[in-house]
């Protein structure tokens, strides 16, 4: 019952989102940037680096903003479906799956397809993998924001702040941390700290696949050694997954008791 309801709702959300202008424009812009960046820069590593920057800049902010707005706009629709004896957990997860898959498909078409066609390499695959994970993560955070905040305006504000925090502020704090403790061996703590920011995690994952990794010096070497190992890969994958699962679980928990 839970399963079929979920499938039905996801199907119709996707039908809606595939006609959504923002999703179409997002896909189109990603595709134009990806194709131009990959075909213009002569060497593949450089093209991928630019694509990485595009991913890190656009994916978190667009995912979280779009998802937050979409969730808030679906409020009445959610109420209507809940009144049709859909369970709350099913409903909220269906909303998440719908939006997350639409955004992921947009990323796959916009960035994934061009980079596989024009520049197939392990690094490209890692980039796509990171981009998808960032989409899933920031959509999950958007869901949590939707569940926590009653007011749409406040929700959007929170979404912007969250995106800024992870793309910019966190790194600023990290830099001041590195600055203050530069006398100490901080490379291992750094490895731990990075896990608290999915954007950094995704960035380093891709950088390690590219030859610019050697520029990251000792920390980079340490990261490479760790993330290259089986335990490291499992750890990284685990971190990324937790970044999806924790906000999702929290959302479901909170949504079950939420007054609509």
């Amino acid at each position: 019952m839970l399963h079929t309801d979920m499938k039905t709702i996801v199907k119709y959300i996707l039908l809606d989102l595939f006609k959504n202008k923002t999703i179409l424009v997002y896909t189109f812009i990603l595709a134009v940037l990806a194709v131009s960046v990959l075909s213009m820069s002569g060497n593949s590593s450089k093209g991928l680096l630019s694509l990485l920057n595009i991913t890190l800049l656009f994916v978190p902010i667009i995912s979280i903003l779009f998802a937050t707005i979409y969730f808030f706009n679906s409020m009445e629709f959610i109420e209507l479906l809940l009144a049709q004896s859909v369970r709350r957990k099913t409903m909220i997860l269906a909303e998440y799956c719908g939006v997350a898959s639409a955004l992921s498909i947009a990323y796959l078409l916009g960035v994934g397809l061009p980079s596989v066609l024009l520049n197939y390499s392990p690094a490209s695959i890692t980039l796509i993998f990171s981009g998808i994970f960032l989409t899933l993560i920031f959509t999950a955070i958007a869901l949590l924001i939707f569940v926590v905040f009653k007011d749409k305006t406040k929700g959007i504000g929170a979404a912007i702040i969250t995106a800024l925090f992870f793309t910019l502020l966190f790194d600023g704090l990290l830099l001041s941390f590195i600055y203050s403790f530069s006398e100490y061996p901080i490379d291992k703590p750094l490895l731990g700290l990075i896990s608290f920011n999915p954007v950094d995690l995704g960035r380093i994952l891709v950088l390690l696949q590219l030859d610019v990794a050697v520029m990251m010096g000792y920390s980079g070497a340490l990261f490479k050694e760790f993330m290259g190992s089986v335990i490291g890969s499992v750890y990284t994958l685990g971190c990324m997954s937790l970044w999806v699962l924790i906000p999702l679980a929290a959302s479901v928990r909170k949504f079950k008791r939420k007054d609509l």
Partner: peptide, 18 residues
Amino acid sequence: YRSRIGYMPQIGRYPENM
């Protein structure tokens, strides 16, 4: 029990492109 209720909300907002 909700399947025995027909609910008509005050504001009918649906996914825009449906």
